[in-house]
């Protein structure tokens, strides 16, 4: 079984795994941001990812399949998701911050149920698909094996988002305030900053990332009901093994998850799905609080 895995196939699979990692990282870094600052385990983060993919599809459809469609969708989808999250946060969430984690968890789960059905109402239960723009279609040749251009594109986007997040949290005012709020919210409130709006901003940025992830994943797979279920558990596990609220932890966690998954596909396809979970369990047995320092 392992004998006929060539070095080239292995490298190619790693590259594919890395591009999957990009999506996982973008989605889970948003989740981690919200967990770190607001202390909310946001279960409907996965729903927003799914909604992002559907909005991307619709945006591209409106433009009638022109090559521009994908790029417009890439902008519209995350913004649309951010708008939805703004409404939910200001309307309902901001009244519940003092509740215990269990209540918050169930509350966000309620929204996952609601969003799941709303997506069914709006887009129906059929599969949808969105094709990549012509420039990103087709294949490169790497190590003599074909490598999808779109995956290469994802490999470029990943570091870009990571840099953007680093810049946001370390170099901007809102980033600095939110990092302070993550550690001590009373203190931030005491110096006259409106903590409630800081929370809203962080929440929206986190959700924006879910939408972006959904738009980016759209050309690589069928857009369908149930996307939310699959991604949210993965995102949670990534955040946990990385260290709650730590963006770099999310990156590390996504790498572990994505790479074990693609190695699993090579080694034992039937049980590939099991490999990342084993990796998570092993990490947590030795580092129960995650690999990097949690802000909690």
């Amino acid at each position: 079984m392992t004998a006929n895995i060539t070095w080239a196939a292995f490298s190619q699979q790693i590259l594919v795994g890395l591009s999957k990692t990009t999506i996982l990282f973008i989605v889970s870094s948003g989740l981690s941001l919200v967990l770190g600052v607001l202390r909310i385990p946001n279960v409907f983060h996965g729903s927003l990812y799914m909604i992002g993919a559907f909005i991307a599809y619709s945006a591209a459809m409106v433009l009638g399949g022109s090559p521009l469609g994908f790029w417009v969708a890439l902008v519209v989808a995350p913004l649309g998701v951010a708008l939805i999250s703004l409404i939910v946060e200001r309307g309902l969430f901001c009244r519940l911050y003092e509740r215990e984690h269990l209540m918050l968890l169930l509350f966000t789960f309620a929204f996952m149920l609601v969003f799941g059905d709303l997506v069914k109402l709006v887009w129906g239960s059929d599969y949808r698909s969105l094709s990549a723009p012509p420039i990103l279609q087709g294949y490169f040749s790497i190590f003599g094996l074909p490598f999808p251009r779109y995956n290469a594109f994802l490999l470029l986007i990943g570091p870009l988002v990571a840099f953007g997040l680093w810049f946001l949290t370390n170099k901007t005012k809102i980033g600095k305030i939110s990092r302070a709020a993550a550690v001590d919210r009373e203190m931030v409130g005491a110096v006259g900053i409106n903590v409630s709006w800081v929370f809203a901003a962080v929440f929206i940025i986190g959700c924006f990332l879910a939408g972006l992830g959904g738009a980016l994943v759209a050309p690589t797979q069928n857009i369908t009901q149930g996307m939310d279920h699959a991604i949210i558990i993965e995102a949670f596990l990534i955040v946990i093994i990385g260290g709650l609220g730590n963006i770099w932890g999310a990156l590390l966690g996504a790498l572990i998850f994505g790479l074990t998954d693609s190695i699993g596909i090579l080694v034992w396809p039937q049980f590939a799905i099991v490999f990342p979970y084993i990796a998570v369990v092993v990490v947590l047995m030795f580092r129960p609080q995650g690999l990097l320092k949690s802000v909690w």
Binding site: F236, I240, V274
Partner: peptide
């Protein structure tokens, strides 16, 4: 060994592992 939210999350991880095995075997 873990408390509260970490306990719950690790349990989800382990449970998903069991689910994944059943789902594929």
């Amino acid at each position: 060994r873990l408390s509260k939210l970490y306990f719950g999350m690790l349990q989800i991880a382990l449970g998903s592992l069991v689910w994944a095995i059943v789902y594929r075997w």
